[in-house]
């Protein structure tokens, strides 16, 4: 039986009792998205699988605190985010100052018009190496910027969900996305893929 067919409260009550059927539905529905996101955040295959397992273990251990104020998927991605921060074993915060902001500023003249216009990435997008190129460029993103890109652009989560998962404001998420995309753009153009000829 799919979770959607149960009321959320029924499903939660059964999960608290480790109902094997509901547990299997939960795992089948969410394992792969969590795995993909962990890979996107930069963890190796084995580590990403360990993280998925840890997410469910932690979820079941903390299920009493899940009050249904956010979607189950959002809650699970939130746990994944915490796990990724723990594994990086460093304080991850977004600095107010980021050099990418200066690079963006340098693209415009005093009147706000382009001084150094963007290049076309057509050739890159048509290339078979696009996956490799974007993966390489994502390596250069700070963790929070990377997480925003993974959750929004890779997994397609909406902005509200991403704010809850990363515990940031809408404004902060915009800043993180702005910096992530600018950094990726600079990297992709810098790899010489922007030339259209």
């Amino acid at each position: 039986m799919k979770q959607a067919e149960l009321s959320e409260s029924d499903a939660l009550a059964r999960l608290k009792n480790r109902d094997p059927e509901v547990l299997a539905d939960l795992v089948n529905e969410h394992s792969r998205p969590l795995y993909r996101a962990a890979r996107g955040m930069g963890f190796k295959e084995d580590e990403a699988e360990d993280m998925v397992q840890d997410v469910f273990i932690t979820f079941l251990a903390s299920i009493d605190r899940f009050e249904g104020r956010s979607q189950l998927r959002t809650w699970l991605f939130g746990i994944l985010h915490h796990k990724s921060m723990e594994r990086r074993r460093k304080r991850v915060r977004e600095d107010q100052h980021d050099t990418i902001d200066e690079i963006f500023e340098s693209k415009f003249d005093g009147s706000g018009s382009w001084a150094s216009p963007p290049q076309d990435l057509v050739r890159l997008m048509e290339s078979k190496q696009i996956g490799e190129a974007i993966a390489h460029c994502m390596e250069g993103l700070p963790p929070l910027q990377r997480s925003v890109f993974v959750l929004r652009e890779m997994e397609g989560l909406d902005g509200d969900a991403v704010c809850k998962i990363l515990e940031v404001s809408v404004t902060n998420m915009g800043v993180l996305m702005f910096r992530a995309r600018n950094r990726l753009r600079e990297c992709l153009e810098g790899r010489g893929w922007g030339k259209t000829q």
């Binding site: 996107g40 996956g131 974007i134 890779m154 997994e155 995309r181 990726l184 753009r185």
Partner: peptide, 9 residues
């Protein structure tokens, strides 16, 4: 870039 993200997915 969004398309590239989806391909990476």
């Amino acid at each position: 870039m969004r398309e590239a993200g989806r391909r990476l997915r």
